Simulated assay, not measured.
Amino acid sequence: MAKIAFLGLGVMGYPMAGHLLAAGHEVTVYNRTSAKAEAWTSQHGGTWAATPRQATEGAEFVMACVGNDDDLRSVCLGDDGAFAGMSSGSVFVDHTTVSADVTIELHEIAQGHGVSFVDAPISGGQAGAENGVLSIMCGGEQAAYDRVEPLMEIYSKICRRIGNSGDGQKTKMCNQIAIAGLVQALSEALHFAEKEGLDGRAVVEVISQGAAGSWQMVNRHETMLDDHFAHGFAVDWMRKDLKICMEAADKSGASLPVTALVDQFYKDVQKLGGGRWDTSSLFKRMRETG
């Protein structure tokens, strides 16, 4: 069994770390708010540490799932950062959705410490983390990925190495681009159904079995119609991710007109007070403004 440190116990990291411990691994956790780390150990066992460095000392593998580029830098770097506590030959796995630029930056710094770095952003939401069925898209050296894949399989239904450092994050950008368009299209379909006096549930029962079907349609249409938007992945975080997508597109020359438009629709949701609503709240925007 492996000795693992897990940094970040949000709605995703909390259950992911629990799966690792339940599989028999030795897990030490760190969270910026220590009360969350104490609660995790009370529920699952294991141990918690006051700093990333203390959590990672002696660990073979370190997983991180924090908020953004700056959060990731803060847990990795400095005298109390993860890299300062990690031994040469250990592997750092980043499950945060961040820019490919910070991924490549930290990958290079980790190499200077003799540490391998795998970018491994996740998709599947809070339910996917709790049920251990996440999709994980990875970048980094093949040898490092091969070592850590068995651990990631504990909380995933699919885990793939896409390519070199940063390629996992670029794949996550593709994921968010696709989701943005799908949720807006579903919102428009449900909005149109309501305006035409149709039963939205009956409509989805039929169209979800054909070419229009999607995970979002099957899993979110009922809660959208019920005005329930508390499914974990907040609009604030989606706008952070879409900003990363559009900045990367500016550099590569990719055209993302629908993504840019939907990002502005999410801005409207924030103005409605929905920054912590989940991403399906695009439908609420249409109800409120349409």
Rank of each mutant, 00 (worst) to 15 (best):
K172E: 13
K170D: 01
Q209C: 11
L186D: 01
E194K: 06
G168I: 09
R220G: 00
I122A: 15
I136E: 01
E247A: 14
R161E: 05
Y155L: 07
G132D: 06
D227M: 13
Q216M: 15
G181N: 03
L256C: 11
D146C: 01
I177T: 09
L151N: 04
E194P: 01
N219A: 13
V204A: 14
L190G: 07
L186A: 01
R160G: 03
A120W: 05
C138Q: 07
L225H: 02
G140L: 10
A230D: 14
L134R: 04
N164V: 15
D146W: 01
A189I: 15
G232W: 08
K195M: 14
A193F: 10
I177M: 15
G210F: 10
G114T: 09
H231I: 06
S208D: 09
G132Q: 12
F229A: 14
G200L: 05
G124T: 08
V115Q: 03
G168S: 12
N175D: 13
K240I: 05
G166P: 00
N175Y: 04
D227F: 13
G168F: 10
H221C: 13
A143K: 08
C245F: 04
Q216I: 15
D241R: 00
S255A: 13
K172R: 10
K195C: 08
F233K: 03
D199W: 02
L225W: 03
A193S: 12
D119E: 07
M152K: 00
G166D: 02
D227Q: 13
G210C: 10
N175M: 12
G140K: 03
N219M: 12
Q216D: 03
E222Q: 14
G112V: 07
V218F: 00
G166F: 07
K157Y: 00
E196A: 13
D119A: 15
I122H: 05
D146I: 00
T223C: 07
S165P: 01
D199Y: 00
E205G: 11
N164G: 15
F229T: 11
F117S: 04
E247R: 12
M217R: 09
Q142Y: 05
G168M: 14
A189V: 15
A202I: 12
C138V: 02
F117C: 11
S156Y: 04
G213P: 01
E149G: 00
C159H: 09
G139Y: 02
E130W: 02
G139I: 06
N131T: 13
M238Q: 09
A211M: 13
G166Q: 04
M246Y: 04
D226Y: 00
D146F: 00
P121N: 04
H191D: 12
R160Y: 01
Q169R: 08
E153A: 10
D250V: 02
M137K: 02
A189M: 14
E222C: 08
D226R: 08
P150G: 05
S116M: 08
I162P: 08
M217I: 15
L198T: 06
G163P: 04
S214K: 09
D236G: 04
G125V: 15
I244K: 07
G210Q: 03
G232D: 10
L198I: 12
I122T: 14
I177Q: 11
H228T: 08
G132P: 13
A120G: 09
R160A: 06
G197A: 14
G140C: 09
V203L: 15
Q142L: 15
A234G: 14
G125Y: 09
